[in-house]
Nucleic acid binder design. Structure first.
Length: 648
RNA sequence: GCCGCUGUAGCUCAGCUGGUAGAGCACAUCAUUCGUAAUGAUGGGGUCGGGGGUUCGAAUCCCUUCAGCGGCACCA
């Protein structure tokens, strides 16, 4: 039998018969390692202890102390254990797939009766029983016919369909947790007893389409979370609780920023304090864009369907548009309009006014454009996904050779803005040509390369989303993360040669001939609604001073200080600080608590002493100490802090 | 849009197997002028998301509809 050489992390090698398993190797090292071992890393790949190794390789035996493989195995084995538990309790349930995801796993089931929240407790209990049985995990490779026959006999059509979709050259691996069998790539633990019985929890039940396809059956998904020990689970659950406190919907209500109501689903009623954030942010963006070489425009809300037909949106997105029909008394036809779902066709109308020269390019046109999209009811989410929103939209009309420099310029612009707003952790995704597309491959090559090169030129890495681009061009997505880890696309840049064509945009080139410009659709914040939602969550409501809707409260301790408090407020207001006096007949404790809960960054307490000395006792949100400052000092200090970052 | 859950005073929530709604906070009034996270007393406020039905009687049961939440699908 052929011999292979396995090299361990410490550099030592041992020689084994080809086909040796990592389990054998672990035994060879020591019986105690064999017992503790959970898997092996073989040439960087994650191996089950039962899989044969056929070639020379680097090998490391993993134990529960190796976090990454341990988490993957624990979660994956739990997925199987959960599926076994569910089928134990409800034998008429069909199993489908159950992958490992961030922080845990899920498994999708097909069962007539819906699972209830109480069922989760039952399933957890059954899972613990299975873990305590310490059943061995076995694996075998089966041929297709046998596997298909097996699942057909067992009435598991989903598994049969899965097998059919696995490429023919891939082996079909079966796993058994005790006598419960599942088709699975592996790897898995040695026995169910290796799963910590106190470090997992079933989290929720949800619907999910089979294979992510809305035309296929809706399955029931159970989500679980798991870690390698009880404390890690506890920490994770604690983090979730903390994150829930940062939810913009909760803070929006508590801080009295906005509300939404039944009569206008998916649309925001901005309250004074919320609107202050909005306008402050908008003013900032307006200044940044002006400095960035944009011209600002504004275009109509209600636009005849003819334009949407021309742009192609009527065909593709009619279902998602708010249609406005107007009966003119003498009109032969009813006028059919749509609330604009986007600004680009309108911007092209402005571009098309008058002849444009190559000298006008790149023409950067910006609009705080209010759009309405009839989003599916289930898509709505607080102010992050709404039906009425305002984009910080912009379109750059340019030549093909300007795509890359303009994109690099935009990325630099965006990163400046994000940094000003406190975001350093964001990612770029590059979506490339989809199956259904227009334009030649050469054009797509050029556009994709321009975007990728621009990212690299700007010094940013990006994730490639193959086939996720729009039908007319590739796009960059700039993604931020909310309090509970959901990712949201905020900024975007899309290349589009289609719309200028459809709407006849053209410019005169150096040759005196007419040419088509390319359009770059771009947004930095994306929409004010979504971005403010993210902003609230990122800062847990404690916004940077310049964005805080209520920046300073001057709280009196005795009513004799009322006049002085008003004087202080007047001085702060004159210095451009949002200040208000709280002269209510309440104790200072009460006022401090109320405004702290309200996330006011600075509370200035004034009593007899302060009136006498013309000072204030300042307290910064989140700090317990106070400091005494003179009126002039505090006005100067807060004037500076209230200055937006671009004006510093 | 799909699956599931939820919908009771401004907010957070209680209300068992059906018998005409309750708490805390908030709010109002009065008293208190009290130095850094809730001063006390008194009081007003809801017909239980909307519509329909069953019943002698429904917040509690059924149907329907709307909205929200958790996912899935969608996201120009």
């Amino acid at each position: 039998m052929a011999q292979i050489s396995l090299t361990f992390p410490d550099g030592n090698s041992r020689s084994y018969d080809a086909g040796v398993t990592a389990g054998d190797v672990a035994s060879d090292i020591s019986p105690s390692l064999r017992k503790k071992a959970i898997s092996a890393t073989v040439n960087g790949a994650h191996y089950d202890l039962q899989w044969p190794i056929d070639t020379d390789a680097q090998i490391a035996i993993n134990t529960m102390k190796d976090e990454a493989p341990a988490l993957e195995l624990v979660r994956h084995d739990l997925a199987h254990i959960m599926a076994r538990a569910v089928q134990d309790i409800w034998p008429d349930t069909q199993v489908t797939i159950g992958p490992v995801i961030k922080d845990g796993w899920y498994y999708d089931f097909d069962r007539k009766e819906p699972f209830t929240p109480e069922d989760l407790g039952l399933i957890e209990k059954k899972m613990k029983e299975i873990i305590n049985k310490r059943d061995d995990v076995r694996t075998e490779i089966w041929d297709r016919t046998r596997a298909v026959q097996y699942y057909t006999d067992r009435g598991e059509p989903y598994k049969v369909e899965l097998i059919d979709s696995i490429p023919g050259n891939e082996p079909l691996r079966m796993y058994w947790h005790g006598d419960w069998q599942d088709l699975c790539r592996g790897p898995h633990l040695q026995n169910t007893g290796q799963v910590p019985a106190d470090a997992f929890k079933l989290m929720s039940i949800a619907g999910a389409y089979w294979r992510g396809d809305s035309t296929r059956p809706m399955l029931q998904r159970i989500y679980g979370t798991a870690f390698t020990n009880k404390d890690a689970l506890k920490d994770h659950l604690h983090r979730l609780e903390e994150a829930a406190k940062r939810d913009h919907r909760k803070l929006g209500r508590e801080m009295n920023l906005f509300h939404m109501q039944e009569e206008a689903p998916g649309q925001v009623f901005w309250h004074p304090d919320g609107w202050t954030i909005y306008t402050e942010l908008q003013d900032y963006m307006r200044r940044r864009q002006r400095a960035g070489g944009y011209v600002e425009v504004n275009t109509p809300q209600v636009v005849d369907r003819k334009l949407w037909e021309k742009s192609g949106h009527w065909d593709k997105y009619q279902e998602n548009m708010f249609i406005v029909e107007v009966d003119e008394e003498h009109a032969r036809e009813k006028a059919v309009n749509a609330l604009k779902p986007m600004n680009c066709p309108c911007h092209v109308q402005i571009f098309n006014q008058g002849l444009k020269s190559y000298r006008d390019l790149p023409l950067r046109m910006a609009e705080f454009g209010s759009c309405a999209r009839y989003e599916p009811s289930g898509a709505l989410h607080g102010i992050m996904r709404v039906r009425g929103f305002t984009q910080d939209d912009g379109h750059i009309f340019c030549r093909e050779d300007q795509i890359e420099p303009e994109t690099a310029r935009f990325i630099a612009f965006l990163s400046r803005v994000y940094a000003d707003l406190g975001f350093n952790d964001w990612t770029i995704k590059l979506s490339t040509r989809p199956e259904q597309r227009i334009g030649s491959d050469a054009t797509w090559d050029m556009m994709e390369k321009a975007l990728g090169d621009a990212c690299r030129a700007a010094g940013y890495d990006f994730e490639l989303l193959e086939g996720e681009g729009a039908f007319y061009g590739p796009k960059l997505e700039f993604t931020l993360t909310d309090a509970i880890g959901r990712n949201w696309q905020c900024g975007t840049l899309q290349v589009d040669a289609n719309l200028p064509e459809r709407l006849d945009a053209e410019y005169i080139g150096t040759d005196g001939e007419k040419h088509r410009p390319v359009m770059l659709h771009r947004a930095t914040l994306g929409s004010f609604e979504r971005f403010i939602g993210i902003l609230i969550e990122e800062h847990a409501g404690k916004l940077p001073f310049w964005l805080a809707p209520r920046q300073v409260v001057v709280a009196t301790i005795v009513s004799d200080a009322d006049d002085y408090a008003r004087e202080l407020v007047a001085a702060l207001t004159a210095a451009g600080v949002r200040a208000e006096a709280d002269t209510r007949n309440e104790k200072i404790n009460y006022k401090v608590r109320e405004h702290s809960v309200g996330k006011v960054p600075v509370i200035l307490a004034v009593g007899a002493r302060e009136v006498e000395e013309r000072t204030a006792t300042a307290r910064q949100l989140g700090e317990n100490q106070t400091r005494v400052v003179t009126m002039d000092e505090i006005v100067a200090e807060l004037r500076l802090r209230a200055t937006p970052p671009d004006l510093l």
